[in-house]
Amino acid sequence: MYNQLIAEEALVNELKQKESQAKAFEVLVNTYKERLYWHIRRIVLDHDDTDDVLQNTFIKVYKNIDGFKGESKLYSWMYRIATNESLTFLKQKSRKMGVSDEELKNRMVENLQADVYFEGDEIQLKLQKALATLPDKQKLVFTMKYFQEMKYDGISEVLETSVGALKTSYHLAVKKIEAYLKED
């Protein structure tokens, strides 16, 4: 953990210096692209949309790295940008389509059935339907904990929410999903 922090600090310094920036940014993209991809994918569901949001996230990181104060960890900061970008993307999408947020979520899940990059079975599809019924915060906490296996401390830094509140959100999410999956 300590070594990881030192490596992160060195990377941030390199990113802030013109001569080492390009190389350091490539390292950054290669280190975090998969983790951020899956985080975004679980919010926006569609692969092409995820690709757009992932690229925008890295562009924002690149443009704002000078403003990164190091108050939180680099990865928490990037996760926060990715989360905000994903939620903003969905908001804009629903406005463009002229539908409510809930309606958009339902359509996104319906589209999964025809998605070539969704290999889920019936239960996994039902799980996505259950997730679509949750408030944003509960859904985020659930996917970060259950699928991404993040620790509460890490999630707390990303979502800027206390660990206690996150545990409550996770517990509520699990109960709701279980109840949904048990339904016929």
């Binding site: 692969h47 690229q55 969704f118 889920g120 799980l127």
Partner: peptide
């Protein structure tokens, strides 16, 4: 609850995305 969520990615996507970014 299923342990994985069944999402997939096109082949070679992750090696190509670095270049795009």
């Amino acid at each position: 609850m299923p342990k994985s969520d069944g999402f997939g990615v096109p082949e070679g996507y992750f090696s190509g995305v670095t270049k795009k970014v």
